[in-house]
Design a protein around this nucleic acid. Structure first.
Length: 430
RNA sequence: GGAGGGGUGUCGUAACGGUAGCGAAGCAGUCUUGAAAACUGCCGGCCUUCGGGCCUUGCGGGUUCGAAUCCCGCCCCCUCCGCCA
């Protein structure tokens, strides 16, 4: 969330940010009105409390000296009643202010291009050349059935639509990709590997910004009041919730592997086939906690770390800077990595790398003491997919398919697949 | 799930129901050739008309003029028992 004091002092900048995001300004107007009412009542109730504190002291002192204090106690009883009445109102206003503040998205960074939606995103660079096929390439869902490695029909029976079984060489490929990505980030990019909880509480969801605004997109376990994580970003960023980090520890780099669960309300009818849009998918997520003055350099490095995965796999991709209209709620600036997908005939999102500045840190209360002492300050948090594994499986299948229906194994993955050059290998069964 | 113990500021520890004390680390200032020591302040949050005021003892209620303290509910951690991959 934004700093309430800052919002109060710069309402026009917030209004401008909402305009750039093409979002309704009424939240802000409501916030400013409620905030003013809250502060007025707060001043009144605090005055009464000051009176009560003074009187209590007098009562204690008077009683010690054997004076009759019953009249004072009687008067204070009335003041106390006034306090509890007004206090209730103050608390109500305070939580209304907080709810409204939680509903205001982050301020886009000055370098974020203006735009209404994804059509206005700006391509930053391209890497690799989309392959030209000497035969008609198949979509990964068709390859999956042909090779017997994807089974969405039985998954529909067992779980429902938008789930799949990955089997045999497909499962093997996915496991290889997972290990390859984790090894790359741990051994070469300096991230600490974490296997996080896949269920988190409400506070964690608020901390990273999924709640309260996006409850419909989440799976919830009603009985225990827990949520299935939509990304490892949630548990991993919340590792340091309500903590004070020391400057010497920063920056902190984590890489978390998890399954991700998304209800995706409103997405029905889009990407219904294949591995692109699922209720459950696996992802390797990069999360950083950094000093504020370094966060934009760290964002560039984060994007490079995610790009390295695609480069090693020799998959053509492009980097896109999201426009103000396409930026996610908590993000100040986001780069998407889009991989070439022959079945779509275009680039498809496979990673999203964002700088949240102090927006999540303020919500999750993650602070540090600046070098040389002084006030505690909020860290900056960043995260990015490194990468979405299901979509990477799809990209490998489609980009590495051969005329005979087999899939060539990318060089970088061979150490993870017993050195085989393609699957299914000759004379071997999956 | 059951029994017992615990949760206090950056950390560690106190406080017969009378309004949160002491110690340590860090930072700034004074002193010093410099450093250490010593002293003072800061080192949680909010409001403010900048005088100050309010809040903060895991969370939420209750009793009371007044709650870290007493009562009720919940959460988390530790120990033991039970169950379990």
């Amino acid at each position: 969330m934004l700093d309430l004091k800052w919002v109060r002092a710069h309402p026009e900048q917030v209004r401008e940010a909402l305009r750039r995001r093409h979002q309704d300004e009424t939240v802000l107007n409501e916030l400013l009105a409620k905030d003013e009412a809250w502060r007025a009542d707060l001043a009144a109730v605090e005055q009464l409390k000051a009176e009560r504190n003074k009187a209590s002291e007098q009562i204690a002192r008077g009683r010690k000296q054997g004076e009759d204090v019953t009249a004072q106690i009687e008067r204070m009883r009335q003041v106390s009643d006034q306090i509890s009445a007004l206090d209730g109102k103050v608390r109500q206003l305070e939580s209304a202010v907080r709810d409204l503040l939680l509903a205001i998205p982050n301020i886009p960074h000055a370098s974020v291009p203006e735009g209404r939606d994804d059509r206005d995103n700006v391509e930053v660079r391209r890497w690799g050349e989309p392959r030209t096929f000497e035969f008609t390439p198949l979509a990964h869902w068709d390859l999956g059935v042909q090779l017997g490695i994807l089974d969405s029909e039985r998954a529909a029976k067992v779980a429902g639509a938008r789930f799949t079984f990955v089997k045999g060489w497909g499962a093997r490929l996915q496991r290889a990709l997972t290990n390859f990505m984790l090894d790359l980030h741990v051994k070469e990019h300096g991230y600490l590997e974490v296997l996080p909880p896949f269920l988190v509480n409400r506070e964690s969801m608020i901390g990273t910004g999924q709640l309260p605004k996006f409850a419909e997109e989440m799976f919830k376990v009603e009985k225990q009041d827990l949520y299935l994580i939509p990304t490892a970003e949630v548990p991993v960023t919340n590792i340091h919730r309500d903590e004070i980090l020391s400057t010497a520890d920063l920056p902190l780099y984590y890489v978390g592997y998890s399954s991700c669960f998304r209800a995706e309300a409103g997405a029905y009818g889009r990407d219904t086939r294949g591995l692109i849009r699922m209720h459950q998918f696996e992802k390797v997520e990069l999360v950083k906690f950094v000093l504020p003055q370094t966060s934009y350099d760290e964002l560039e490095k984060l994007v490079n770390d995610a790009e390295a995965v695609l480069q090693r796999l020799e998959l053509p991709y492009r980097v896109v800077c999201l426009s103000t209209g396409d930026l996610t709620f908590s993000s100040a600036k986001t780069y998407d990595l889009e991989v070439w997908m022959p079945s779509y005939g275009r680039y498809v999102e496979i990673s999203s790398c964002s700088n949240f500045e102090d927006y999540q840190a303020r919500r999750a209360n993650i602070r540090y003491r600046p070098e040389g002492g002084g006030k505690l300050e909020f860290v900056h948090t960043l995260n990015g997919s490194g990468l979405a594994i299901g979509r990477t499986v799809a990209a490998v299948l489609e980009n590495y398919q051969r005329a005979d229906g087999t899939i060539q194994v990318p060089l970088a993955l061979r150490p993870y697949m017993d050195g085989i050059e393609a699957f299914p290998p000759r004379g071997l069964q999956g």
